[in-house]
Each structure stands twice: as C-alpha cells, then as structure tokens.
Amino acid sequence: MTDPEAAEPAWSVTAHRATSPDGVDTVHVVVVGAIDPNNAPELRAVWTAAVRPRVPQCLELDLTGVVFCGSHGVRSLVEAADACEAAGITMRVIASPPVRRVAAITHLADVLHIED
C-alpha cells in the first residue's frame, strides 16, 4: 500500500509580478514537483513569458518545492540565467535540497545564482 503523504507532489509552475517594498520590479516563478523532460519545456515557457514584453528588474525562481531536477531542468535553468544576464535582469534562485545537490554536482551554483 502506498503512503499518500510520501507521494511526489503534483507538478505546477506559476508566475506573478510584484514590486518589492524597496521598489524592485520582480517576477516570481514558483515550481513544485519534479522538473523532468515532460515539463521542462513548460517551465521554460513560463519564465520566458514572464520576462516579456516588459522586462523586470529581477526574476526570482522559487524551487523550494522541487523534489527532482534532471538534466532538462538544469538546461532550462541555465537558459534562464543566460537570458537574464543578456537582458540585464537579476536572477535569484531559492532552491530545495535536490536542486542544491544538482547545482553542486554540476558546479552551476554560481551560474544559477542560488541564494544561501
């Protein structure tokens, strides 16, 4: 019998734009579940749409709900970092332990701007 509490969380990705109290125009993207080949394109589409047509000052990726990040997820995150750098957008990643582990193994923690 499967323990429902041990079940992997359902995949979801949402984005919203807000201005912080210090006036920074920020797009917040919240991801829950596993980033795998099936949904990495959706993640890419969400962050791409979130920074267009009006470019924010900051793109914040909240990955605290991510339980797995495969190579397709890493690729999407690196593409986000590259796009932000090219557009002059500050990128911040708030990562779960699985994302931190992948970033450490791939030596991409600095590239992905993972917050402590």
Rank of each mutant, 00 (worst) to 15 (best):
M1K: 08
M1P: 03
P4L: 05
A6F: 00
A7H: 02
E8V: 07
P9T: 09
A10Q: 13
S12N: 08
A15C: 01
H16I: 00
R17V: 00
R17Y: 01
P21T: 05
P21N: 04
D22Q: 07
D22A: 04
G23N: 03
D25W: 00
D25T: 01
H28K: 04
V29Y: 00
V31M: 11
V32G: 02
G33Q: 02
G33F: 01
I35N: 01
I35A: 00
P37E: 01
P37V: 02
N38T: 04
E42T: 13
R44W: 00
A45V: 02
A45K: 10
W47F: 12
T48C: 06
R52M: 10
P53I: 08
P56W: 07
P56I: 04
P56S: 06
Q57R: 15
Q57H: 14
Q57E: 15
C58F: 00
C58I: 01
L61I: 10
L61G: 05
D62E: 15
D62G: 12
G65N: 12
V66Q: 02
C69H: 05
S71K: 07
H72C: 12
H72W: 13
G73P: 11
G73A: 08
V74Q: 12
V74N: 04
V74A: 14
V74T: 14
S76Y: 06
E79A: 15
A80D: 10
A80Y: 11
D82T: 13
A83E: 15
E85C: 10
A86W: 05
I89S: 11
I89T: 11
T90S: 12
R92N: 05
R92P: 00
V93A: 15
V93F: 07
V93L: 13
S96T: 10
S96L: 07
S96K: 07
P98S: 04
R100T: 06
R100W: 07
R101V: 05
I105Q: 10
I105F: 10
I105H: 06
T106P: 09
L108E: 01
A109W: 07
V111I: 14
H113D: 10
D116V: 09
D116T: 11
